[in-house]
């Protein structure tokens, strides 16, 4: 019965021209859903006109135009990635496709991780220190100026890491106490805070824009 259902929905999409057109226009952006605040990211993506896809298996990477690595526990992410041969597929993906990491996701993207040291994708030219601001009791919300247009940005920090050092090619878009908190390097974006937990979606808009321009470039 479920087979009939899915066939029906495929037929519907194919015959429904306006819908197909919208689909090409709105990028499909994966959110790594091993665990973490993937729901909050999916909701933010919907609100800025992208189509979220919860990614739990490596083969799903082929279906998406960009990827968000959400907040959560980076140690847990790594266990899964190591287990399913996921890590090598993901390494390949982040080499060429737009990827945005928040908090644990930022840790995963960095070239070097400290406190304690752990494996990473090594695509963001930066050193990231885990739990650098302390425990949950030290979590906080700040509003500060950024390079984004449109005034100060609210930033929600939860057991946040710190970008201790950035290398060549990294563009710093916002800082906290002199350390970068929002950065960009080519097709990679990273934040140590959680833009998905704020009503202001400028950071997600910027990422979706990056994904769109990338879609144009790769003859899709």
């Amino acid at each position: 019965m479920s087979g009939t259902q899915s066939r029906k929905s495929i037929t519907k999409t194919e015959s429904d021209e306006p819908k197909a057109a919208t689909r090409t226009a709105s990028p499909r952006i994966g959110v790594l859903a091993i665990q973490g605040d993937y729901d909050a990211h999916a909701q933010a993506l919907r609100e800025v006109g992208a189509e979220p896809v919860l990614v739990r298996k490596p083969e799903q990477l082929a279906e998406i135009d960009g990827l968000i690595l959400p907040g959560g526990e980076s140690t847990t992410f790594l266990k899964f990635l190591e287990r399913d041969g996921f890590l090598s597929s993901l390494r390949e993906f982040v080499q060429t496709k737009p990827t945005f990491g928040t908090c644990a996701g930022c840790i995963l993207l960095a070239t070097e991780v400290t406190h304690p040291p752990q494996k990473s994708l090594g695509v963001l030219n930066a050193t990231v220190e885990r739990n650098a601001y302390g425990r949950q009791i030290d979590s906080s919300i700040h509003t500060a100026a950024t390079e984004l247009p449109g005034g100060p940005l609210e930033m929600v920090y939860i057991r946040a890491p710190r970008i201790a050092k950035t290398g060549e090619g990294v563009n710093v878009l916002a800082q906290r106490d002199g350390f970068p908190v929002l950065v960009e390097q080519g097709h990679i974006m990273a934040a140590t805070f959680h833009p998905e937990l704020s009503a202001d979606h400028r950071v997600h808009q910027r990422f979706v824009k990056m994904v769109r321009s990338h879609m144009g470039r790769s003859s899709r």
């Binding site: 859903a33 091993i34 665990q35 973490g36 605040d37 993937y38 729901d39 909050a40 907040g71 959560g72 526990e73 847990t76 908090c103 644990a104 949950q136 979590s139 906080s140 919300i141 929600v156 939860i158 057991r159 959680h194 937990l197």
Partner: peptide, 14 residues
């Protein structure tokens, strides 16, 4: 409250 619920969000699926 937002920070408290925020941490709970991070634990989802775990």
């Amino acid at each position: 409250l937002r920070l408290k619920v925020g941490l709970a969000e991070m634990l989802k699926g775990g």
